[in-house]
C-alpha cells in the first residue's frame, strides 16, 4: 500500500519488536472469564449472561476456521499463481486476474451466503467462503510478485543453465516472496473479519455474540464479539508482520 511510506517507521531490525505482543496479550486478558463482562457492565448496554460455549472456545473456533482456510488458500493459491505466470499463458493469467478482481468486488456476505445452498448450514459454507475470499489477495499478490521479477535476472538465470524448475525455486519464488507473504497477511487478517459473518451461517466463532447481540438489540453482547474479533485481527496482523512486510 502506498500509504506505508508515510506511516511511522517501524523499530530497527535487530531489536525484538515487543510491540507485537501487545495485541495478543490484550486478547488473552479479555479471554479470562469475567474480565470482559466486568468491563462492560458499568456502560449499561445490556445483560451479559455467562457464555455458553465459553468465549475462549468461540475464539478458538474462529482461529481454527481462519487457520484452516489460510492453509488451504496457500496450498491452492501459490501453485495457481505459479501456473498462470508461466510463459505463453497470457490468457490464463488474464482470466485469473479477472476472477480475482470479481472476488474483490462481490460482497463477502454474498459469497458466504451463496455457499449455503451448495453446502448447507454450519462451518462448511463459511470455510468455502473464506477460501474463495482468501484466495484473492494471495493469488493477486502472487501474480504481481512473480510478474515483477526482473526479466534480466531471469535471462541471466537461463543463460547460466538453470532449468525451469531451478529458475522458479532459486530466482522467481525468493524474489516474489515478500509480496506473496504480504498477500498472505492481508488474506489472513481479512478472513478474521469474514469469519465473523460466518456466524450468520451457523459457523460459530466470534461473530455469534455480534449477530445475537444485533438481533436481540443487546449492545453489550455485540461489543464482546466486536472487541474480541478486533483484537484477534490485530493480533494476527501483528504476529504476521514478523514474517511479512505490509504491501
Amino acid at each position: 500500500m502506498t500509504a506505508g511510506s508515510l506511516t511511522v517507521a517501524r523499530s530497527g531490525r535487530q531489536r525484538w519488536p515487543w510491540g507485537v505482543l501487545l495485541w495478543p496479550l490484550l486478547l488473552l486478558i479479555c479471554l479470562i472469564p469475567g474480565v470482559l463482562p466486568r468491563l462492560l457492565t458499568p456502560l449499561h448496554l445490556g445483560e451479559l449472561t455467562p457464555f455458553d460455549p465459553p468465549l475462549w472456545r468461540l475464539t478458538l473456533t474462529h482461529l481454527g476456521l481462519v487457520a484452516l482456510s489460510t492453509g488451504i488458500v496457500l496450498a491452492l493459491g501459490v501453485p495457481l499463481a505459479v501456473a498462470v505466470t508461466r510463459p505463453k499463458r497470457e490468457a490464463l493469467r488474464q482470466l485469473a486476474e479477472t476472477l480475482v478482481g470479481l472476488g474483490q468486488t462481490v460482497p463477502t456476505f454474498a459469497i458466504l451466503a451463496l455457499a449455503v445452498p451448495a453446502l448447507g448450514f454450519g462451518w462448511q459454507p463459511t470455510l468455502l467462503g473464506l477460501i474463495v475470499y482468501g484466495l484473492v489477495p494471495v493469488v493477486s499478490n502472487g501474480i504481481a510478485g512473480l510478474m515483477a521479477v526482473d526479466a534480466s535476472a531471469l535471462d541471466a538465470a537461463r543463460g547460466m543453465g538453470m532449468t525451469g524448475r531451478q529458475r522458479l525455486v532459486r530466482v522467481e519464488l525468493p524474489l516474489a516472496l515478500p509480496v506473496l507473504l504480504a498477500g498472505v497477511r492481508t488474506s489472513t487478517v481479512y478472513n478474521v473479519g469474514t469469519a465473523t459473518v460466518g456466524a450468520a451461517l451457523g459457523a460459530g466463532g466470534l461473530g455469534e455474540p455480534i449477530i445475537n447481540g444485533l438481533s436481540q438489540q443487546n449492545t453489550a453482547l455485540v461489543l464482546v464479539g466486536a472487541v474480541l474479533s478486533a483484537l484477534l485481527a490485530l493480533s494476527l496482523d501483528a504476529v504476521l508482520s514478523l514474517f511479512a512486510p505490509r504491501e
Binding site: L43, G193, V197, G207, I210, G225, A226, A230, A233
Partner: peptide, 20 residues
C-alpha cells in the same frame, strides 16, 4: 496509520462497535 489499522478490523465488528 488509522486507516490502515481500521482496515484490519472486521466490518461486522466495526458495525457493532459503531452502534454501541
Amino acid at each position: 496509520g488509522l486507516a490502515n489499522a481500521v482496515q484490519t478490523l472486521p466490518s461486522l465488528a466495526l458495525l457493532g462497535l459503531l452502534i454501541a
